[in-house]
Lab assay of single mutants.
Amino acid sequence: MFYPNSPQTSPQLTQIPYGQQYAMMQRQIQQPYHPFATTEPQARLYPYHYQGPIQQEQGGFITQQSTAASPQYVQMRVTPVDQSIMSGYPNQTANGSSSSSFNYNIHPQQQQQQQQQQQQLRHHAMPVGSVPLQDDRYRKQLIVNYLAPDVTSTDLHELFSRFGELDGARIIYDKQTNMSKGYGFVYFCHAEDAKEAVERMSGYEFHGKWLKVGYSTNPLNIVPSNSSPYVHAGSRGAAG
């Protein structure tokens, strides 16, 4: 039997160049792979992502010199942007860049009308829970959420009447099932009393439920100042 490094198959040491006398086997001759043993700084910083320098080929596509990437890492192929796409944008300079302001050559009167329309939209648009300043009635009506099913309009009136005089209180019921929808409205005579009720009743436990109280901004629920107070009856038909 002959071994790869046996004296019968191995040459004389004098015939082997210096430095390879003890590297006779194939696994010894093959050098191990060192990912950080390279002179390129990109490979030292990113050993798993770097795959060699990027070269520009004919046709405008950018390719990489090395083989496919590892399945664990996804390499994105980048193509140059066609400058003709950006030619339609206004205020574009000769080098292809555009300024931040756009001039669509709008007539001054049209621009003024658009600004007025935007101001009107901001004036009428009102986020949930906010209180408008032009109508004091919005500051007097509250919406009470997360009410228990057994709470009546009379219970709601008695709960909030300790903060001040009320114009009314009612629970909203479903017309088909005649069941409470879980929320109601309270109408105060003074805005200061309503503000105190919002601050003190939010998070209050009532009939096993934690109440959420806020201003009601729905104009359909506003009680006119010259109208008669609501009837605080315990029956659902009268309260709904």
Rank of each mutant, 00 (worst) to 15 (best):
Q42A: 05
Y73D: 12
Y48H: 15
I54R: 15
M24G: 10
E199T: 13
P229K: 11
P7D: 05
A191R: 12
G88F: 07
H157V: 15
Q141W: 00
A194D: 00
I171N: 00
V213K: 00
G19C: 04
Y187I: 01
E205H: 14
E199D: 10
Y33R: 15
V128L: 10
L142H: 01
G164Y: 02
P47F: 01
L159K: 00
H107E: 07
R162W: 15
H49D: 06
D136A: 06
S180P: 12
V151E: 00
N5F: 04
D193N: 11
L133A: 08
E40D: 12
T38L: 06
T63H: 09
P11Y: 04
A169P: 01
Q83I: 05
G19A: 09
E158D: 14
D136Y: 12
L45A: 14
S101C: 04
G208T: 02
S227F: 14
T14M: 09
Y18M: 06
Q134R: 14
F188Y: 04
S99H: 11
C189P: 00
W210N: 01
I143S: 01
R27N: 03
S100M: 03
I171W: 00
Q119D: 07
S66R: 14
Y89L: 07
G88Q: 13
Q83M: 04
Q51W: 03
Y3F: 06
F102I: 13
A233N: 05
V231P: 11
P11H: 07
L220G: 02
Q26P: 07
G60L: 03
E205M: 15
S97T: 10
L45C: 15
Q72I: 03
S101N: 09
D167E: 04
V231G: 11
I143P: 00
G234S: 09
Q112S: 08
R139C: 08
L159T: 04
V74P: 15
A68M: 08
P7A: 07
R137M: 02
A148F: 02
G88W: 04
S227E: 05
Q116M: 05
L121I: 09
F2E: 05
P224G: 04
Q117D: 04
Q141D: 00
D155V: 11
A169S: 11
S202E: 07
Y18S: 08
S66I: 04
Q42N: 12
T154E: 15
Q141P: 01
Q114K: 08
Q51F: 03
L45Q: 14
P108E: 12
E158Y: 14
T177F: 15
L156Y: 00
D135R: 04
Q64E: 06
S228F: 14
R170A: 02
Q110Y: 15
P41W: 12
F2D: 04
D193A: 07
I16R: 15
S227Q: 09
Q72S: 12
F185D: 00
H190M: 10
Q65G: 08
I171M: 02
A68Y: 04
L159W: 01
M179L: 09
V128D: 05
Q118E: 10
L220T: 04
H107R: 13
G164E: 01
Q75R: 15
A169D: 01
Q55G: 09
G52H: 13
I106M: 12
P41S: 08
S216V: 01
Q112G: 10
E165G: 14
M25R: 15
R27F: 00
H49A: 11
K140Y: 01
Q110L: 09
N103G: 11
P32T: 07
N103T: 10
Q20T: 05
I171L: 07
Y173V: 05
E205R: 13
A197N: 01
V151D: 01
S66V: 05
N178V: 13
H107W: 11
M25T: 10
D167F: 03
I172M: 02
A239Y: 15
Q21P: 13
E158P: 00
V223Y: 04
Q117R: 10
Q51P: 13
Q115G: 08
T152F: 03
Q56V: 04
N5E: 06
P80Q: 13
Q72P: 12
A233I: 05
K175I: 04
Y33A: 13
Q20R: 13
Q120G: 08
V151Y: 00
V186P: 00
S225G: 05
S98D: 09
S99V: 10
V223M: 05
R162D: 03
V78I: 07
R139H: 12
Y18P: 13
D193H: 03
S66Q: 09
Y230R: 04
Y138S: 03
S153W: 15
V131Q: 10
A194F: 00
K209P: 00
R122D: 03
L13I: 10
Q115I: 10
F36A: 14
N145V: 02
Y33V: 11
R27V: 00
K175A: 13
T177K: 03
H232I: 09
L45S: 14
N95C: 13
Q30W: 02
G184T: 00
Y215E: 00
P229V: 05
D193K: 14
T152R: 10
P224T: 05
P47E: 05
P35E: 10
Q83E: 06
Q58S: 10
V144I: 14
Q83Y: 07
Q31W: 08
Y104T: 03
D167I: 02
S130V: 08
Y73M: 15
T93K: 15
P229W: 06
S130Q: 06
D82C: 12
P47K: 15
E199P: 07
H207S: 05
S235I: 14
S161T: 07
Y46A: 13
